[in-house]
Design a protein around this nucleic acid. Structure first.
Lengths: 111, 111
DNA sequence: ACTGGTATATAGTATTACTAAATAGCTGGT
DNA sequence: ACCAGCTATTTAGTAATACTATATACCAGT
């Protein structure tokens, strides 16, 4: 697998959407979300980045938070989307579809 | 055509690549690049945004600049990619292909 | 006691696109 | 002569977002 570095700028504006999508699948927590993103291919994404996104989601009232004990370490903060979060996710994919199709159009265009 | 607003954050990290691609097709200038992006669907992109990108490209020595008179108004600053610019464009598309495929993978994944 | 994996939090930084305004050349209409 | 409108560039300041780096803490195995 090709490993690309310094994806930072390209991830701006899409990482939050990816986190929303991951949360929408099942209630989950920061550390697990980070591992999921790493497994997806975004190997450089670290916990700190995900936690700031989660705090933002909470501040913007897009998620419900539940603290649960863990056998493996300290308590986990589980996140689940609420209605506003699901709506935000929907518009995220709408924007993504639009933007990515335009960019691919530019890329594929006859020279 | 659906018009989406507030694409700002999603354009971060890709707008520069789009500008590089547009310049790679033919020598061109800021105002024309802006119109090209608007026509592509990025209707909210304004000159100011493109000029800051062009200045950055110049500072990073990715382009060659030529000033030419115009019948339609003030002189135009034409931009052309140099070798470093073409290499930057190549890695941009490599990153784009990687990131967009991962995101689509996340999107399409069986629920 | 120590290491390593699990788990969260946060202060500070860099990058990037946008806002908003100024400047200037050219054309056509009044 | 004046003005509006399109063409064309420049730049100071702002907002948003991901990253760096570090601190804290729980638990298991050695």
């Amino acid at each position: 697998m090709i490993v690309l570095e310094n994806l930072t700028e390209m991830l701006k504006g899409v990482l939050e959407g990816c986190v929303l999508e991951i949360i929408s699948r099942k209630e989950t927590y920061g550390y697990e979300i980070t591992r999921r993103l790493n497994a997806l291919g975004f190997t450089d994404v670290v916990e700190g980045t995900v936690y700031t996104i989660l705090i933002r989601l909470e501040r913007n009232k897009l998620v419900e938070v539940t603290k649960k004990p863990s056998d493996m370490g300290p308590p986990r903060k589980f996140f689940a989307l609420n209605d506003a979060g699901r709506e935000k996710l929907r518009t995220f994919w709408e924007k993504w579809t639009f933007v990515s199709s335009r960019i691919n159009e530019l890329k594929e265009e006859k020279q």
